[in-house]
């Protein structure tokens, strides 16, 4: 017997599945964005350890419309 936590719609126990799935997806996205953000400074093209990139992945800098703050 599943103990309902949040059932309030017409889906019964599926309410719980939907809610928990959405929460897991967002927590997963949180972990992914944490990991990907470590590449952020490399993407800005200034890091000395920036790996070589292909022309299609050209760094944002220098780019029109950007203004690096001092």
């Amino acid at each position: 017997m599943i103990v309902p936590l949040l059932a309030h719609g017409n889906l019964g126990y599926w309410d719980e599945v939907v809610f928990v799935s959405v929460a897991l997806i967002f927590l997963g996205m949180m972990v992914v964005s944490w990991w990907r953000s470590r590449q952020m400074d490399a993407d800005l093209g200034q890091a000395p350890s920036a790996p070589p990139v292909s022309p299609a992945q050209a760094p944002l800098q220098p780019q029109e419309g950007r203004f690096e703050l001092d």
Partner: peptide, 8 residues
């Protein structure tokens, strides 16, 4: 970050 970000 896209507008002002700098690795400095």
């Amino acid at each position: 970050i896209p507008a002002w970000g700098s690795a400095r």
